[in-house]
């Protein structure tokens, strides 16, 4: 089922001034239910502008944006933004910078409160969200979010978005600035969310080795356009083009390409380190024959 449909979307910042900048040019993309979509591309390629269209933070200038049955392009009646923001949850870069309440519980309850839910419902949602991000409700609910560690703060912020119970969750650089432990925790969290809380997840990441660990489909933005939209297993057939765009490719792909160039052909799709390791072991055990 189609969740989000974008057609010929174009966006220009500071139109008709000397500072004019085209951020999106004729972008067409569909996000389906169950997608685990990764978006890559370097800073300024348009990805952030793109995702901000998905929950109405940026109004479409030209083209069509349809999220579930909400048409963001229509003028009258005005699109239902409250419903939209309930359906599409957005976790921004460094989301801990949005924390403001004096307790963890109040901060996470901010979203559901804005939805004008009942007290009981709000409480249930806060508990659920905290459980989902791995924070014990009784231990953390009355603590100040500002006293927590960086990784914990980030999980509180993510819980604040999960409490909206979105059907689509968008995360912009969810592991940026964290240390290895914090990173691992957030990655495991995202993987577990996909299976339990939100059926559709979109992640923006710069770390190609990380994003290929969990995403099944990758969209590449380059110069305000969608350069590729492919399953992970096919994208790296275009390694040369990606490198030419200044983007990184996974280490396992690099090693595999090197082996190919030296006449060694490993079996199967090789994207992650695990793929590479098992393919090498298999190759060796078969004595170089397939």
């Amino acid at each position: 089922m189609q969740n989000i449909e974008i057609k010929n979307l174009t966006h220009v910042y500071s139109k008709k001034t000397p500072y004019e900048k085209v951020a999106l040019k004729d972008v067409t993309l569909t996000i389906n239910e169950g997608d685990f979509l990764g978006i890559i591309g370097h800073t300024g390629s348009g990805k952030s502008t793109f995702i901000q269209h998905l929950n109405g933070l940026i109004k479409p200038q030209q083209g069509e944006v349809k999220v579930f049955d909400i048409n963001l392009t229509q003028k009258k009646p005005k699109p239902d933004f409250r419903k939209l923001r309930q359906e599409v949850g957005m976790v921004f870069q460094y989301p801990e910078y949005q924390l403001f309440a004096d307790t963890v519980e109040k901060d996470i309850a901010f979203g559901p409160k804005n939805l004008k839910l009942s007290k009981e419902e709000i409480n249930t949602r806060v508990r659920h969200a905290m459980q989902a991000v791995g924070l014990d409700y009784d231990y953390y609910k009355d603590r100040s979010p500002f006293d927590l560690s960086g990784g914990q703060k980030r999980r509180v912020a993510i819980a604040g978005v999960l409490a909206m119970m979105p059907k689509v969750l968008i995360l912009d650089e969810p592991t940026a600035g964290l240390d290895p432990i914090g990173k691992k925790q957030i990655l495991n969290l995202i993987k577990s969310l996909k299976n339990t809380i939100t059926p559709t997840i979109v992640v923006i990441s710069h770390d190609i080795n990380e994003i290929t660990q969990y995403c099944t489909r990758l969209v590449v933005f380059n110069n305000a356009k969608v350069a590729f939209d492919l399953p992970v297993s096919e994208l790296f057939n275009h390694s040369e083009e990606l490198l030419a765009m200044g983007l990184d490719i996974p280490l396992a792909v690099k090693v595999n390409n090197h082996l190919k160039a030296n006449g060694i052909k490993l079996e199967g799709d090789i994207i992650t380190p695990q793929d590479l390791i098992s393919a090498i072991v298999k190759y060796k055990n078969n004595g170089g024959k397939l």
């Binding site: 901000q52 929950n55 933070l57 409250r82 923001r85 309930q86 949850g89 957005m90 921004f92 989301p95 910078y97 949005q98 924390l99 403001f100 309440a101 901010f110 979203g111 804005n114 939805l115 604040g160 978005v161 909206m164």
Partner: peptide
């Protein structure tokens, strides 16, 4: 910050005056 709070359903342009002032708290504190 405004974008992040909007994404959590905050409304800055509707409601009575005191509600609007109150709605600025989640922006001003961060």
């Amino acid at each position: 910050i405004i974008a992040a709070q909007k994404a959590r359903g905050a409304a800055f342009d509707t409601g009575k005056v005191h509600e609007r002032v109150k709605s600025l708290v989640p922006v001003l504190i961060p």
